[in-house]
Design a binder for these strands. Structure first.
Lengths: 96, 96
DNA sequence: TAGCAGTTTAGCTAAATTGCTAACTTATGT
DNA sequence: ACATAAGTTAGCAATTTAGCTAAACTGCTA
């Protein structure tokens, strides 16, 4: 495994490593949502939400589609949500 | 799901979201390793490696054991490595 | 007890991240 | 054409992260 591969993986993980972004990934796992819906969900200002989404999009884990004046985002890699149970397990065990 | 749960998950992901740390997680998935081995692997200065390890330890994904003057680290949550194939898939697909 | 290998902690600087407000864009409706 | 709704981009301040060097520990071994 070369360094470049690890850099790419790190970018994807970094794109998820934020409470608001995780919340959105979770929501998008159920199906596509518009920015306005996601904004209500996370409760941050619209520009903030938009930037979080742009970040995940540039990492390649979500994609967008325009419908009228709404932008719909969808999760490109649903298997990412499979880590959550594993992470929660880690949080339960903690120290050792 | 409450906000706190997402914050905790984000911390775990953040602890992994770095090329050097991912490299170490991959290495530790094969079995425990001392800091000196990990340092050779990632090629950064020893204090830097030590701090990366401390970060992952405080996130709860690795643990340490002292043997003489060496510290051995091990992966507490091996299932974390299951995401990598999924991430690589995401990197292959990209935009949409 | 002195010295050495292995590791961690401290202190610093540079760079990246986050969140906000304000300004701009795109599409809808009148 | 104008107003409004939905999003994005820009620019700023505060915080966090990353890497380095130097200094402190920790545990062997002579």
């Amino acid at each position: 495994m070369n360094t470049r591969a690890y850099e790419l993986r790190a970018e994807v993980l970094k794109a998820m490593a934020h409470p608001a972004r995780l919340m959105m990934v979770d929501a998008l796992a159920e199906g596509e949502k518009c920015v306005c819906e996601l904004q209500k969900l996370v409760g941050s200002a619209m520009p903030t939400v938009s930037r979080h989404l742009a970040q995940m999009k540039s990492a390649g884990i979500i994609a967008s589609r325009r419908d009228g004046n709404k932008m719909y985002y969808r999760l490109l890699v649903p298997c990412l949500t499979n880590v959550f149970p594993c992470i929660d397990e880690a949080l339960g065990a903690e120290q050792a």
